[in-house]
Nucleic acid binder design. Structure first.
Lengths: 335, 335
DNA sequence: AATAACTGTGCAATCGTTGCCGGCAACGAT
DNA sequence: ATCGTTGCCGGCAACGATTGCACAGTTATT
C-alpha cells in the first residue's frame, strides 16, 4: 500500500545503474556534473527519500538514540528530553523515548527493547526500584555507548551528568533553617539512588552547619519513587504522628514534592514548611506553597547527548570518562 | 564495537544453513524437533536476538508507530501516550514519540521524519498553529495509515478519537452558571482546531439554556495554544480590562488553564471562578482553584492505537472509518 | 522392485543501499 | 602507434533475515 520510491526506480527511469544513482545522490566526485544534475532533479521531482532502514542495515548504525526516564509527565524529564532532542536532531540522530515508571522490570524490558532496536546509544536515568544493574552492565560490556544523567550508576565507567545535588539539598535545608524551623524532616527517594545519597549529604551538611542534630527518625525513603499510590502519604502520616512532629520537610524529588504537598493538605498540616527539588512550572499556584531547588534539566539533556554522540562517533575505544556536575538554582516562595 | 550475534553465526557453529536456523527459530513445521531443540538452545545460550532492522527491510514494515503530540509534559498527552503504549507493546509495536510544541514547522518536520523512518502508521493530535494540512494529506494519499485523536482533522477520511468536547464544555459552563456567574468568558485555543469549535459549541449551548446572551467580547483565542510566553496573560488582561469584567472563565485546554490561573493570580483577580479542561493530577493543590473537565486520555490512546493497528494490518484497503467519542467527567472543586 | 510421497535441509533471491573492482573511451605523452 | 592516465559508469557482493523451490534421503504404496 505505502510504497516509497527507491534508487532502483530512479535508475530504471534514467537508464543508469543503481550505484551511479547512489553516488550521484551523495555527491560522489566520480560522477559527471551533468549526470548528477539529472539524477538530483529527477529524485527531487518524484520526492525520493533514501530508505534509512536499508542504510542502517548496511552501516550497522541506526542514527537513533534511546532515552529511558521514569516518566515523561515529570517536568524535569520532559525538559531534559527537550534538551536531548535539541542536540540529537542537529546531529542527525532521532530519539526513542521510553518510560520505566520507576519499575525495575520495565527498565529491563525497555533497555533490551532499545538495544534490539539497534539504537546507537542510550541515555538513562535509573528507575527508583532498580537495585540490580546487570541488564545495563551487560550491554555496556558489549560495547553499547551509555550515558547517565540525574540518577547515575556510580560504579559504571562512562560519561555522567548530574546537577549539584549536595549543594541543592544544602540550599533548601538551609532555607528552612533560616526560616526558623528546628525539626526538619527529609522525604527521600529510593535509598540506593545516587541522587538520594547526594541530597541526603546536603541535608546533613546544612543541619551540621547550624548545629542541629541529625535525627534518623525524620528521614523517610520511598522505594518506588512515589509512583505507588499511598507511598508518600504513609510516609508523611508517619512523620505527622511522631511525638515531636517536624515543622518542615525537605523533599528530594519532583514527584515526591507534589505528593508531599497533597498529603500535607489532606491532613491539615499546612503549617509545615516544604522545600524540595522540583522543576514544575506551576509551583507559584500551589497551596501550600513549595520552595524549590531547580535543576538545569534542558542543559543536562544537551550535555548528556553531546557526550553520548561523542562516544558513538569515537573512532577508538574511549578510555577517559567525564562526570559533569551542573549548578542548581534555589527559588524560595515569596510568602 | 557493538557486534550482535546473527543467524549466520549460529549456522556456522552448528554446521547448518541459515535457512534451517531461521526456520527452526520461528518454529517452522518442516524442521525436525531435534534440530529445532539444538538451535533454540544454542541461540538462547549465546543470547541471540534477531535483527529487527533486517526484518524491517525485508518485510517493508518496521513494527513501529509514530506519535505526534504538542508536548509530552502535558498530562493529558502523557496519559494518552501511556494508553498508546499499553496497546502497542502488546501487539508487538514500538512507539516513537515526537513533539510539535504546537508549532506548524515542527509538526511538518516531525511527520516527515517519522514517515522517512518508515513507521507503519501515525497517531497525531494537531498542533495549535497548524492551518495547512498538506503534509498530512500527502502521506495519507500515499497510503500511510493515520489516526487522529483529540485535535482531529475533520476533513480527512480516517479513524478518529475524541472526547465529548461539546458535553464537557457544557458541563463546565453550566457549573459556572449554577454558581451564580453571569458574565462567563471563554479562553479558547487556536480557532481552527476541532476542539476549539466543539468546546465553543458546548459553551454556547449552556449559555443558551440559561438564557444568557452570548457576548463575543468575552471570547479569546490563543493561536499558539498558550505556548508563547505572554499569549495567555494578554488574553486574560484584556478580559480584566473590559468595562464589564467577567466573573468566571471557561478555559478550553490544559495548558491554557494553568496559564489562566497564573495570570489571574498575578493580577489579583482571584474572585473570578475558573473551570476548564485539565487532566492535571495536582489541581487539588491549586490556588486559585480550578474545576475541571477530565478527558479519558488513557482510553483515548488505547482506542486510537487499536484503530491504527487495524489499519496497518488490514489486508484490503479500508473504506469505512469510525469516529469514537468518549465521555468526559466533570469534577468541581469542593470549596 | 519401481514409483510415489514425504521429511528435512540447502541454495539462492529478496528487501534498498553502498563499497569496491573493473571496464571502456578519450586523452596526452612517448 | 602504443602505453599509461583519467573520468565516468556498471556489476557484483554484502548487510541480516526470510522463503520458494529444489533436492537428497527415507518410507510407504502399487
Amino acid at each position: 500500500m505505502f510504497k516509497p520510491v527507491t534508487i532502483k526506480d530512479i535508475a530504471k527511469a534514467l537508464n543508469l545503474s543503481t550505484s551511479t544513482v547512489s553516488r550521484a545522490l551523495r555527491g560522489g566526485y566520480e560522477i559527471s556534473e551533468e549526470t548528477k544534475k539529472i539524477v538530483l532533479e529527477y529524485a527531487e521531482s518524484i520526492n525520493f527519500k533514501r530508505n534509512p532502514i536499508a542504510l542502517s542495515l548496511k552501516e550497522r548504525k541506526s542514527y537513533s538514540i534511546g532515552i529511558i526516564v521514569c516518566e515523561v509527565a515529570n517536568v524535569f524529564f520532559s525538559q531534559a528530553i527537550d534538551g536531548i532532542e535539541s542536540i540529537a536532531y542537529n546531529k542527525g540522530y532521532h530519539t526513542i523515548i521510553s518510560q520505566s515508571h520507576d519499575q525495575y522490570e520495565r527498565e529491563v524490558i525497555n533497555i533490551e527493547h532499545l538495544a534490539n532496536r539497534s539504537v546507537d546509544g542510550i541515555i538513562i536515568s535509573l528507575a527508583a526500584e532498580t537495585k540490580n544493574y546487570e541488564h545495563i552492565e551487560k550491554l555496556h560490556k558489549q560495547g553499547l555507548p551509555i550515558v547517565f544523567f540525574d540518577r547515575i550508576l556510580e560504579s559504571m565507567e562512562t560519561h555522567k551528568v548530574t546537577s549539584n545535588n549536595v549543594k541543592g539539598a544544602f540550599d533548601a535545608t538551609e532555607y528552612l533553617i533560616k526560616k526558623g524551623c528546628k525539626r526538619i524532616a527529609h522525604l527521600a527517594n529510593s535509598e540506593q539512588l545516587s541522587i538520594t545519597t547526594q541530597r541526603k549529604i546536603g541535608y546533613e551538611d546544612a543541619l551540621a552547619k547550624y548545629n542541629i542534630p541529625l535525627n534518623e527518625e525524620y528521614i523517610r525513603y520511598c522505594d518506588h519513587g512515589g509512583s505507588q499510590q499511598d507511598e508518600v502519604e504513609q510516609a508523611i502520616v508517619s512523620l505527622l504522628n511522631l511525638p515531636e512532629k517536624p515543622d518542615a520537610i525537605f523533599v528530594a524529588s519532583d514527584r515526591l514534592s507534589i505528593g508531599c504537598l497533597s498529603a500535607i493538605k489532606k491532613h491539615g498540616a499546612e503549617n509545615i514548611l516544604v522545600a524540595g527539588f522540583s522543576n514544575s512550572d506551576v509551583v507559584s499556584l500551589f497551596s501550600p506553597s513549595l520552595s524549590c531547588v531547580r535543576q538545569p534539566a534542558f542543559e543536562m539533556g544537551r550535555i548528556a547527548t553531546e557526550m553520548l554522540i561523542s562516544l558513538i562517533e569515537a573512532k577508538y575505544p574511549v578510555e577517559e570518562f567525564e562526570t559533569r556536575i551542573l549548578d542548581t538554582v534555589f527559588s524560595p516562595t515569596e510568602n
